[in-house]
Design a protein around this nucleic acid. Structure first.
Lengths: 151, 151
DNA sequence: TAATATATAGATTATTTTTCTATTATTTAT
DNA sequence: ATAAATAATAGAAAAATAATCTATATATTA
């Protein structure tokens, strides 16, 4: 489905999606139209889901990251649905996964500082019903953070 | 530093960075030039760090996510530096954070399936020197996954 | 309040994307 | 193997967009 050229193209677009088709065509050794058609196809079949601007966390004063484990008191369909819906609406939560192990969920939370995190926990996360327990870990430093999937 | 218009603009660009300046100008009630100049400034001062294509994990057959805790045997500058350098070079590791708590690091690993994960652990991660212990959790489902920071 | 700096709008130019047509590869069926 | 059909590519033309420039308005500071 994806040939080697597509993979190379996706690698380039995952690094910088604003480079011109001309630049991409040079890098790939294709014509501009060939690149254009390949991108259009990748967009249409949903392999490329969207194009986004990535911000510098420090420069926008959101450099405090926490990872929160959450356990629900019960796992009824109802409680699960409600929790997931509410978590999706929390701006501070960038990622949330249902995971295996001692806890049910792992959340990646991004705020300005510890005080903001405390506020988030007290006023938002633990206000969600049916949360049994939580356990948080704090980011000391970021070693790697990319969105690029290697194909 | 960032006024309300900038924040609104960044929100739009974090959702879709390929919309035209015309579309942005309509949404913001500004002229195309005003939008253009604001974006240029946000790029130049590094608030926008880059523009990337986001791929559909399932469609590129990388829907198995794992979160690995890693503890080093020692925390000498040397071991730490070496571990971090090697982890950065692993394509399967999209994110790696030095964190507080029982373990030293939390890694987000993305591969095709459990077998690929096993391979990753045996052949790559645990091949890195000075790793004391690891503990992995597996994603059962993705509740939320965004790159957009709310300002 | 005047002087300076900053932000905006509208018009123009340069680039880029998109469309179109023709040609070349690749696949499929006979 | 070969002809027919399909898909991919290239180059040229048209349409859309980005980038630049000049002038005007708005805000800041001395």
């Amino acid at each position: 489905m994806l040939d080697q050229i597509d993979k190379e193209l996706l690698k380039l677009l995952q690094k910088d999606c604003k480079q011109t088709n001309k630049a991409l065509s040079n890098a790939l050794g294709l014509s501009v139209t060939a690149v254009y058609e390949r991108i259009r196809k990748l967009e249409n079949n949903g392999i490329i889901s969207n194009y986004v601007a990535i911000l510098d966390k420090k420069k926008v004063d959101k450099s405090f990251a926490a990872f929160c484990h959450v356990k629900l008191v019960q796992h009824s369909q109802d409680y699960v649905m409600k929790f997931e819906r509410e978590v999706r609406n929390l701006d501070e939560v960038l990622e949330c996964y249902h995971i295996s192990g001692d806890y049910d969920y792992l959340l990646k939370v991004l705020v300005e500082d510890m005080e903001a995190f405390r506020e988030f926990m007290v006023k938002k996360l633990t206000k969600i019903d049916h949360i049994g327990s939580t356990h948080s870990m704090f980011m000391i430093s970021e070693v790697k953070c990319t969105t690029a999937i290697t194909l």
